[in-house]
């Protein structure tokens, strides 16, 4: 299901215009990324799962293309942990 389909369906169900729905979704994703995940806070959405960000330090790894060892820089990774209800549904 694409993003535009979701927006269409939401506007039908909630009785709001598509522009309004777009604005609300945009600001909500902004809050989730800027205020929650970026500050290392997790968020559980019922019936879906948990979103969280964790830190992965720098590490050494082998690059088979160049045939050499590389030092990879640290980074943060966003992780989704599916909830039990969604796990059981798609078993």
């Amino acid at each position: 299901m694409t993003n535009s389909e979701i927006i269409k369906n939401l506007s039908l169900h909630l009785g709001k215009s598509q522009v309004e729905i777009k604005r609300l979704l945009k600001s909500s994703t902004k809050i989730i990324t800027r205020d929650i995940l970026d500050r290392d806070i997790g968020i559980t959405i019922p019936d879906l799962g948990t979103f969280s960000a964790y830190f992965k330090g720098k590490r050494k790894s082998f690059n088979p293309y160049h045939n050499k060892f590389m030092l990879l820089p640290p980074k943060r990774i966003i992780r989704f942990h599916p909830g039990s209800s969604i796990k059981n549904e798609f078993k």
Partner: peptide, 24 residues
């Protein structure tokens, strides 16, 4: 809005096997 999007993602996963949430 949020509960409905969750509902729709489940529906989309059942139907197509994938769901694109813009921005996320």
């Amino acid at each position: 809005l949020l509960t409905e999007t969750v509902h729709l993602t489940r529906e989309g996963l059942n139907r197509d096997g994938y769901v694109n949430l813009g921005g996320l």
